[in-house]
Design a protein around this nucleic acid. Structure first.
Lengths: 245, 245
DNA sequence: CGACGTGTTGATCTCTCTCAATTAGAGTGG
DNA sequence: CCACTCTAATTGAGAGAGATCAACACGTCG
């Protein structure tokens, strides 16, 4: 994958992201140190790593997770293009969670003090950063609500709806109503706090009921109103336009 | 409760908080709009509220929560003195969670654009703010790990240890090894994603086993090593020194 | 071809929930 | 001072959602 200049970053064309002043883009570009690619399943940052750089995800999917010593794993949230990786780590000594590539990914690498430079030289960018972190926290909040208080069926429905919306915003040109869905059932289980077997049974139940279909790594919501009904949703789930870096 | 000037804020004397330059304190003071007190159980911010000001908690306990339409409630995390209330709301249109006073509380009220002023005029304060939000997220991450992957016994043990540590840092002069513990079992249940009844039974089991004791609103860890063993803890759980506002 | 990862399904087990009832303390009004 | 009410804690019994165990199907890949 050849280097892409921030000015020409294809992400900027998406409706999802706020437009930027040219100055901002130049600054971001100046802080960028390079670009790396990783394969699906590889760790971008290990749990407890102390010296990780700052990344942004610019293509592919990833997820943040924690594992207990006996191997039980909880996925905290999923990351899509435009998301930061490793902000939390810059803030304290060690990162208390790992980040793993879900699909093949491309990452932009930033220098260690990028966060501080951003705050110092362009306060509104620092402000955006705060916004982004708050936004990510809101996703984790939702996850906690699901895992703590929703039934298995509701959890699965909520996850499908949420990921569909995020993916649809990221791939507006997705044809025939299907969006990329690179998760295995193990990922779903680990995100929802369920066992693999029960996740499978729940997924099949919803599918047999005609609510959705997953095929060839694509997710189709066949009856999104029925899905929303079984989801016991919270708000309207519509995400506001967000800043990109 | 009479007004307290930021310069004389008793929180600043705590080991827990980083020392501040005088300039910073003056700025904070200039942004402060007043002070209010609320009784235990009252909502500081309602779910979905759009016009809430920004608060900091300066005495007492509070918690962030979400409820589903049918009344199921999930507590996201607990707030102690020094914590922000309502940052997430400033960032998007509506706050997707509520904040409720757990004990009687005193709050400092800040103007709407405080966050931006902080970023604009004192970048390092904005940076601190980012740090604080990232820190709070880390707490929610831990909660999600607990609720998703730990047994009831483990969850209770983890919560007791965590709250004990936070409270102990806040009340370093607590006598005889007990720290304030204003939670009812309903709060514990809602934080851990358990039913009230099962929370009670688990709590009693640990107590009968001699791991802890809760009495008159005070929490004692009688055997913290055994407690840590049953907790399936993640890291050492030691929090770094943090910025105050 | 065999090994492996992923998905699928059935049978059992168990942790946690729900329902129900009791106790204790704090407050309130007569 | 005493009934009355309310909230929080407690305990037992039965029910159920989800976990665990075990097999098998299917595709990919060396």
């Amino acid at each position: 994958m050849k280097e892409v200049s921030c000015k020409d970053c294809p992400l900027r064309t998406l409706q999802l992201f706020m437009p930027h002043a040219d100055d901002d883009v130049v600054l971001i570009q100046s802080l960028k140190r390079g670009q790396v690619g990783l394969g699906a399943g590889q760790d971008i940052i290990h749990e407890g790593q102390t010296d990780a750089p700052l990344y942004t995800l610019w293509s592919g999917w990833a997820f943040r997770y924690k594992t207990l010593t006996d191997g039980r794993r909880q996925i905290l949230n999923f990351l899509l293009p435009g998301d930061f990786i490793g902000v939390q780590q810059k803030m304290s000594d060690a990162l208390s969670h790992g980040v793993q590539a879900l699909s093949d990914v491309q990452l932009c690498v930033f220098s260690r003090d990028t966060l501080w430079q951003l705050h110092r030289t362009m306060p509104h960018m620092g402000f955006n950063l705060t916004w982004l972190i708050a936004q990510e926290q809101s996703l984790v909040d939702d996850g906690l609500l699901s895992v703590g208080r929703r039934s298995a069926e509701e959890r699965v429905a909520v996850l499908l709806i949420l990921l569909f919306k995020r993916a649809a915003a990221m791939f507006p040109d997705a044809g025939a109503g299907g969006v990329p869905f690179p998760l295995t059932q193990q990922h779903v289980a680990d995100a929802l706090g369920l066992s693999l077997v029960h996740t499978n049974k729940t997924l099949r139940k919803l599918e047999r009921r005609g609510l959705h279909r997953i095929e060839n790594g694509l997710l189709f919501l066949k009856d999104s109103t029925a899905l929303a009904r079984t989801a016991a949703l919270y708000g309207d789930g519509k995400p506001p336009q967000r800043p990109l870096v």
